[in-house]
């Protein structure tokens, strides 16, 4: 049987159609709206006004920078915890079963609840400072602080188990014989990790990093509750533009910029890990 062009399209329709309908179409609509040709809000004809507004206003420029900050920092913080954790969880130790259950709890806790937990624990006069006071210790400011540490903690807290799960899966799928072979060739545990296990788990690590990064980019509840008064992330400005100023053109322009930035970061990250793979695993061929 030869597959004709038409049958090929018919075969592809369910998958491609889904993508077009639920991903492509909204994106195109958002893009049109941001260019003044939208179906929501006022239709004013093609204009780059919204983008000009966005980039000329320092409030929004700070917003972009801040959005980037609160997606990159929690991602790095999660990675810093999840990678060692995933490695440790490859070994067997007493109480492992219980730990495996407990560490996944944040997975089922919504972001807004996580934000409240951090607030209750770490805000001035929160549980932690009450506990630490008698010992003579005081916590640095963690809620609405300049460095958004509270935001980073809450977002990382939520994504650490997710990352650990993915990276742990990637590590577990590496055949044990590879490490044994490397050891017998003279490599110690550290070398085995850096030269064998890490490069082989890199696709899993990359996937985990990207998913967490994209997830944090659009975070709304956590920065609203725990972030400083200023700057605010683009997600919060978007909300205000759309629902308080009814300026859908500006809101969708922010959305498009945010997506573009996320894509750019993903591309840069791919290039970096590709380079990393070459550096630690040697040339890929």
């Amino acid at each position: 049987m030869t597959i004709t062009r038409t049958t090929l399209w018919l075969l592809l329709l369910p998958g491609v159609g889904y993508l077009v309908l639920f991903f492509g179409l909204p994106l195109v609509l958002a893009l049109l709206t941001s260019l003044g040709m939208g179906t929501i809000g006022t239709n004013e004809g093609f204009t780059l006004r919204h983008y000009a507004d966005l980039f000329s206003d320092s409030v929004y420029r700070d917003g972009i920078r801040y959005s980037l900050y609160i997606s990159v920092a929690p991602t790095l913080a999660s990675l810093a915890v999840a990678l060692p954790l995933a490695v440790v969880l490859q070994a067997t130790f007493p109480g492992k079963k219980l730990f495996l259950t407990l560490y996944k709890v944040p997975l089922v806790v919504p972001g807004i609840v996580a934000a409240f937990i951090v607030m209750i624990l770490f805000d001035r006069g929160g549980e932690m400072s009450r506990i630490l006071k008698p010992v003579g210790l005081s916590l640095p400011k963690l809620v609405r602080d300049d460095w958004s540490l509270g935001v980073i903690i809450a977002l990382a807290w939520k994504s650490i188990p997710f990352m650990t799960l993915i990276i742990g899966g990637a590590l577990a799928s590496i055949p044990a014989d590879l490490a044994a072979a490397a050891r017998s060739l003279g490599a110690n545990r550290r070398v085995v990790f850096w030269q064998i296990e890490l490069p082989m788990a890199l696709p899993g690590i990359t996937a985990a990093v990207l998913l967490v990064f994209v997830g944090s980019t659009g975070a709304f509840a956590v920065p609203s509750l725990l972030g400083p008064i200023y700057p605010k992330p683009l997600s919060v400005w978007m909300y205000e533009a759309a629902y308080q100023q009814n300026d859908w053109g500006l809101a969708t322009a922010m959305g498009i910029v945010m997506s573009a930035i996320a894509c750019a970061v993903l591309l840069i990250y791919y290039r970096l890990t590709h380079g990393l793979n070459r550096a630690i695993g040697g040339e890929t061929r």
Partner: peptide, 19 residues
């Protein structure tokens, strides 16, 4: 430790480093 034994080992699975 295995890395100090200077013993060559060939596995049934070969265990070549795939990357």
């Amino acid at each position: 430790m295995p890395e100090r034994r200077h013993v060559g080992l060939v596995f049934q699975s070969y265990a070549l480093f795939p990357h």
